[in-house]
Structures are given as structure tokens and as C-alpha cells.
């Protein structure tokens, strides 16, 4: 079933479609929120995102463009949370919590998540959207409300910063 059909069924009010929508998109939303805010706050913010998504469904005019719309809402929820916690969205970017105990998880994954959480918010955001959520440059640009060229430059910078963090981590081992 296409996303558009699923969204149309949700807008019609079909309960099965609504639960299917949550099942299909829960993990991508959670991955994005976790990548942006860390594991500790992922559940609360993911729930906030879903409440806003379902409340906003009747106003979604282009069901075929669900993914960018969904991540725009998720981005707003993440930004609100960051603003609440740090006053301004980027102020605490370098203070993001890192994985403290990597013993329970795969080491590589923990290192990657830790490195991701140390990136500035804007760079982390495009990295998560482009690589983890597999969205196109155009969709990332729409979600972040910036031109596609800006997304490209942020991606370049994000890759460079991530590489630096991982290299630094590797050299310390």
C-alpha cells in the first residue's frame, strides 16, 4: 500500500489505517528524535510528535507528501524541546548527552551515536534526515525550511565534523 493511500484512509477516519500508520512510521520518527535529542528524551518527544501528527492529519492537503510533513512536525517538536532546555536551539548543542555506558550495546553503534550527538544541531539534523531517514535533498530542504544548497553545505560540514570526531575517538583508543 502506498503512503498516499494509507494517509487518505487515515483522513477518512479508518481506525485500522491510523494504527498501521503509527506502526509503519514509529521507528523512523523515533530514530530521528533519538538522533537529535538522545535516548533519554526520545519516547516523550516521539509521543508529542504523534499527537501533533494525528491532530494535524485533517489539514494535510497533499497526502503524497506525508514524509516531509511528518518530519517538519518532528523537527518542530525537537526544536521546541531544545528551546525549553537551552533557551535557544543551538546553545546546548555541544552539551548533548553522550552514551555513558556502551557495554550493553554494540561498540560501533554507540561510538557513532555519541559522535552524532556531539555535532551542532543543524548539521546533526541534516545527517539524520538524509542518511538515517533516507530522505531526498529536496525533502530535507523542505523540512528544514532552507534551500537545497544549504542542505548540501550542512551535509558536507556534518560529514567532516563526524569524521573528525570518529578519528579523534579512534586515536584515543
Amino acid at each position: 500500500m502506498t503512503d498516499e493511500l494509507l494517509i487518505v484512509r487515515c483522513q477518512l477516519g479508518e481506525h485500522d489505517a491510523l494504527t498501521e500508520l503509527v506502526r509503519c512510521w514509529h521507528e523512523p520518527v523515533r530514530t530521528y528524535v533519538r538522533g537529535m535529542l538522545g535516548v533519554q528524551r526520545a519516547d516523550d518527544v516521539t509521543q508529542e510528535v504523534w499527537l501533533a501528527v494525528i491532530r494535524g492529519l485533517p489539514r494535510l492537503r497533499e497526502p503524497g507528501r506525508f514524509a516531509p510533513w511528518l518530519f517538519t512536525i518532528a523537527r518542530r517538536a525537537v526544536t521546541d524541546r531544545l528551546r525549553q532546555e537551552y533557551g535557544v536551539a543551538e546553545a546546548g548543542a555541544h552539551q548533548e548527552p553522550v552514551i555513558e555506558d556502551a557495554a550493553d550495546v554494540m561498540v560501533e553503534r554507540a561510538v557513532l551515536i555519541a559522535a552524532l550527538s556531539r555535532l551542532p544541531v543543524r548539521e546533526r539534523e541534516v545527517l539524520v534526515l538524509f542518511y538515517l531517514e533516507d530522505l531526498s535533498l529536496e525533502d530535507c530542504a523542505e523540512i528544514c525550511a532552507v534551500p537545497a544548497g544549504t542542505v548540501k553545505s550542512r551535509l558536507n560540514r556534518a560529514r567532516r565534523l563526524l569524521r573528525d570526531h570518529l578519528t579523534e575517538k579512534g586515536s584515543k583508543r
Binding site: 503509527v22 523515533r30 535516548v39 526520545a42 519516547d43 516521539t46 552514551i99 555506558d101 556502551a102 550495546v105
Partner: peptide
């Protein structure tokens, strides 16, 4: 810290 999803879809 557990990196797996705590909140399942259900």
C-alpha cells in the same frame, strides 16, 4: 544504556 526502542509501536 540500552539503545533499543523503549517505547514500542503497540
Amino acid at each position: 544504556m540500552n539503545d533499543e526502542p523503549n517505547l514500542s509501536a503497540e
